[in-house]
C-alpha cells in the first residue's frame, strides 16, 4: 500500500515512518508547517528542517502551510492529504500519535472523508519502552523544546540516551509527565537512524530558555555521509 506519513521531523513521526517502511511503501512525507507556535495539532519547533530528514531518508516531502488556527488547521491538513493523493497516489496516512485522542480522532475523521486508510503504529505504546527502543535501534534524537515544569535549561539540545531516559522516568514518577512528551512537555528532532542514508549534522543552533519553556532552534545544518 502507498502511504503518506504525517511528518514533523520529531521522533514519533520518524519512528512511525520506520514502521510503515517495514510493511508498506512510504511514497511521501507530509509536513504541515504551522505559523502558530502553540498549535494543538502540529509539532512546530524546527519543522522547517524536516526537509533535511526527508532528503536523508530519500522520500519526497510535501509541505503545506497553515495559520495553525483551531478551525482552519484541520481543513489545511485535509487539503495537504488530498494533495498527497493527487501527487503521490497515497492510499493511506500514517501518524505518530501515541496517546492523544484529540489528534488521532481528528486525523481519523479526515481519512474517512478522503477514503484513506489511517495507521497509528505507535498507538498506546509504553512510552519508556518506546524511548528505549529508539535508542537501541540507533536513532539519534535531541530535545528541541521543553514546555513544562520541571524541565530546566539543561534539557535543551540534550540527546536521548539511557541515562536521560532514566531521568524522564524519575520525572514521570514524581511529576506525572509523559516521558515521551506526548502531552507537549518536550519536542524532539531526529538526526540519524537506521532509515537514514545520511545523518544530519547541526552546525549552528540557538538555545533560549526561561520559566520552564525553552527551545533549541537549528540555524544551520547539513547532511553528512555515515
Amino acid at each position: 500500500m502507498l502511504l503518506g506519513v504525517l511528518f514533523s521531523g520529531g521522533k514519533d513521526s520518524v519512528y512511525a515512518c520506520r514502521r510503515a517502511m517495514e510493511t508498506d511503501t512510504v511514497s511521501c512525507l507530509i509536513t504541515v508547517v504551522s505559523e502558530n507556535p502553540d498549535s494543538y495539532m502540529f509539532h512546530t519547533p524546527n519543522v522547517g528542517w524536516a526537509e533535511l530528514i526527508a532528503e536523508a531518508v530519500g522520500i519526497p516531502q510535501l509541505t503545506w502551510p497553515t495559520l495553525g488556527e483551531e478551525g482552519s488547521e484541520l481543513a489545511d491538513l485535509s487539503d495537504a492529504m488530498a494533495a498527497a493523493i493527487d501527487r503521490y497516489g497515497i492510499e493511506g496516512v500514517v501518524t505518530g500519535a501515541i496517546e492523544s485522542v484529540y489528534q488521532a480522532a481528528r486525523v481519523q475523521r479526515i481519512c474517512r472523508d478522503l477514503d484513506l486508510w489511517c495507521y497509528n503504529p505507535l498507538w498506546q505504546i509504553d512510552q519508556l519502552e518506546y524511548l528505549r527502543l529508539l535508542v537501541s535501534e540507533g536513532f539519534e534524537v535531541i530535545i528541541t523544546g521543553v514546555f513544562a515544569y520541571p524541565f530546566d535549561g539543561s534539557w535543551i539540545g540534550a540527546r536521548i540516551d539511557g541515562p536521560l531516559i532514566e531521568k524522564l522516568e524519575a520525572l514521570r514518577d514524581r511529576y506525572a509527565i509523559n516521558p515521551s512528551g506526548e502531552g507537549g512537555e518536550i519536542e524532539t528532532f531526529v538526526l540519524d537512524g537506521p532509515i537514514f542514508r545520511k545523518r544530519i549534522e547541526i552546525l549552528r543552533a540557538e538555545k533560549t530558555y526561561g520559566n520552564y519553556r525553552g527551545r533549541f532552534s537549528i540555524e544551520q545544518a547539513r547532511l553528512v555521509e555515515k
Binding site: R19, A20, T23, Y119, N120, P121, L122, W123, I125, D126
Partner: peptide, 14 residues
C-alpha cells in the same frame, strides 16, 4: 503482520 497490528493488537497484548 499488517501495519494495523501495532494499533489494534499490540495495545491489548501489552
Amino acid at each position: 503482520q499488517s501495519l494495523s497490528k501495532y494499533e489494534f493488537v499490540d495495545p491489548i497484548t501489552a
